[in-house]
Each structure stands twice: as C-alpha cells, then as structure tokens.
Amino acid sequence: MNQTGTFPSPVGGLLEDRMWRGIDDGRMALPFCQACARAVYPPSGCCPHCLRTELPWRPLSGMGRIVSWTRFHRTYLPEYPAPYTVVAVALAEGPVMVSRLLGPEPANDEWIGLAVRMCYAQFDKGRKLPCFRLAAET
C-alpha cells in the first residue's frame, strides 16, 4: 500500500534504528533472548523477563492474532484520514504490537482471535510502516 505525505517520525535510538532498518527492508526483526527464548519488544539491551543480555536479532514470521481493536473517527495525522482501524496483535513470537489494519475488515463483529499477517505501508523516500491484513485476505 502506498501512502502519500510525510512519514510519521519513528522513535529513534540505537536499537530502534536497527528495527526500523529491517522494517524499511520489508523484514521486521527483533532481538530474541537466548536464555528464555522470548522476543524483546520494544527492542532493549537486556531481556525484560530474565535480564540476560545475549539477544541476537531474528526476523519475525509476521503472523499474529488480533487481541483488541478500535476505529478512529477523527483525523489526528494527515497520513491517516478518518475513519481508520487500529488493531493490537499478539505476534506469533509473543509480543503485542499495535498498528493499522489494512484491506477488508471482518464481515461480522467477531474480531478477537482472527489471524493476521504483517504487511508494510510504503511512504515517500522509501520509508515503511508495519501494518496488518487479515490472514485470509493475503
């Protein structure tokens, strides 16, 4: 999906920059703890569960399930004209990520638990944002 307008400023930092580079390449990655095998999101220098620092980066599968959702009826940023839908997704790797749902919405009101797949909205200058689509639609 191509978006027009300015890319919203991402949170920057040493670890976030690495995550954003992966997103711009269309392959989001996160650090994973070698000791307890959990993904660390947002990226951190140590595991929030066991405090270990051995955290090699791995690409995400992009799969997840909706755990919550809402529809915004007001435009807060020009890149996101209202109405638009935001979902909280429990990624297959464990963390919960919040982003937009693109494409068709569920035909009924039973959103919770639906499978989704990560996709990337393309902005100007090659920047991308991770979003989600219903897995049945990809």
Rank of each mutant, 00 (worst) to 15 (best):
L55H: 01
W57A: 01
R38Q: 15
M63F: 03
P81R: 01
A39F: 04
P59D: 15
R71D: 08
S61I: 02
S61Q: 01
G26L: 11
G64V: 06
L77D: 11
E79P: 00
A29R: 13
D25L: 10
V40M: 11
D24C: 11
D25K: 12
S61T: 13
Y41M: 13
M63G: 04
W57V: 00
L60M: 14
Y41I: 07
A37V: 07
C50P: 03
D24N: 15
M28L: 15
W69A: 04
L60Y: 03
C47G: 10
L51F: 10
W69Y: 15
I66G: 03
P42E: 03
R58W: 09
V67F: 04
E54V: 13
G45A: 08
Y76C: 02
C47N: 08
G26T: 06
H49G: 00
L77R: 14
T75Y: 08
S68G: 11
S68Y: 07
G62D: 04
E79Q: 14
R71K: 09
C46V: 09
P43V: 02
L51A: 12
P56A: 09
S68M: 07
T53F: 07
C46N: 10
C46T: 05
G26A: 05
Y80L: 12
P48M: 14
R65S: 09
P43D: 02
F32G: 00
W57I: 07
Y80R: 02
L30W: 08
R74L: 12
Y76N: 09
D24G: 06
V67N: 02
P31A: 05
F72M: 09
P43I: 02
M28N: 08
P78H: 03
P31V: 03
A29N: 12
G62V: 02
S44P: 00
Q34F: 00
G64E: 03
R58L: 14
S61P: 02
D25S: 12
E79D: 09
V40H: 06
C36A: 04
E54L: 11
S44M: 10
A29C: 12
L30G: 04
C47D: 11
R58F: 11
R74V: 14
I23G: 07
P42W: 02
Q34K: 08
P42C: 08
F72W: 04
E54N: 10
C33D: 05
P48S: 12
P56D: 10
C47L: 10
S61R: 02
Y41A: 13
V67K: 01
S44V: 00
R71N: 01
T75D: 06
M63E: 09
M28D: 07
G64R: 05
P78D: 10
G45H: 11
P31Q: 12
R27K: 15
I23L: 04
G64Y: 09
H73I: 09
S68Q: 13
H73T: 13
T53G: 13
R38D: 11
P43C: 02
V67A: 03
G64C: 01
R65E: 11
W57K: 00
H73D: 14
S68E: 09
S61M: 00
R58S: 15
T75N: 03
P81Y: 01
P78G: 08
P81F: 01
R27T: 14
R74Y: 10
P59R: 15
R27P: 07
A35C: 04
I66F: 11
A39V: 06
C50K: 05
R38Y: 05
V67H: 02
R27G: 13
